[in-house]
């Protein structure tokens, strides 16, 4: 049995129905302890004060914001190449969550930036890229809404997602040309040389894991809804024909 079996809507619905309750539980036992640990059991940083705790919302949401788009890119490619309906519906489902995550990252960043840098917003490369990403999400969802035929909409949004990814990368590179940059370097990196201090590190990892699980859970729920909506459309179309 190949992995593509799960791209069959029926199989997908059966599987997710069984998996989802577990996922919900797992998300809860990851994200809640993560946030509590981060908020209450870590010391205040000497130069950041208690505002440092925004990191437990800010970094995971930013992580999801970017990776949700990557997931949409992969799902769109799968749809264009293999025509699996569930794949493109999952991309559609992820878009709204990605949008919200981007917004959370932007707002939590602004709230954090105010005490740190003395400003809510700066045209810093990282901040700007997120704003651009936010607009890409809006455009992607708007195109889904605007086109009536579901398969046409799936094709066109997938192509937009791919072309948009190229231009999003270009924008990311382009904003580096601006001479200013306020944002600190990446909070996490693989070689662990430039990490945040250890005492913040593990609760942050737990929070990111929790957000990933939350994302997967929400995407699966929304994909189920999209599959049902798609089936409804199919049934209506059949009704009209008969």
């Amino acid at each position: 049995m190949s992995i593509w079996e799960y791209a069959n809507p029926k199989k997908f619905m059966e599987t997710t129905e069984k998996v989802l309750p577990w996922l919900v539980g797992l998300t809860a036992v990851t994200i809640l302890p993560g946030l509590l640990w981060g908020f209450y059991l870590t010391p205040e940083a000497e130069n950041f004060g208690s505002s440092v705790k925004i990191i437990y919302i800010h970094v995971p949401s930013a992580f999801i914001a970017i990776n949700a788009w990557l997931m949409m890119l992969v799902a769109s490619l799968i749809w264009l190449v293999r025509r699996h309906h569930v794949s493109v519906l999952a991309a559609k489902a992820a878009a709204a969550i990605g949008t919200v995550m981007t917004l959370i990252a932007l707002i939590s960043g602004a709230v954090w930036g105010q005490p740190m840098w003395g400003t809510w917003w700066a045209w810093d490369p990282r901040l700007t890229s997120f704003l651009v990403l936010f607009i890409f999400y809006l455009g992607y969802m708007a195109l889904w809404e605007a086109i009536e035929s579901p398969d046409t909409a799936a094709d066109l949004t997938s192509i937009l997602c791919i072309v948009g990814s190229v231009f999003a990368l270009l924008s990311r590179y382009a904003v580096n040309f601006w001479p200013q940059g306020l944002h600190q370097d990446a909070s996490l990196s693989v070689d662990k040389a430039e990490h945040v201090a250890d005492v913040y590190y593990w609760p942050l990892i737990l929070c990111i894991a929790g957000f990933v699980l939350l994302f997967v859970t929400l995407v699966l729920y929304r994909t189920r809804t999209e599959v049902r909506a798609r089936r409804l459309k199919a049934l209506e179309a059949r009704e009209r024909m008969a």
Binding site: P9, R82, R83, H85, R230, A234
Partner: peptide, 8 residues
């Protein structure tokens, strides 16, 4: 990869 709504 059936291209129609028949999929469901």
């Amino acid at each position: 990869s059936v291209p129609a709504d028949a999929f469901f």
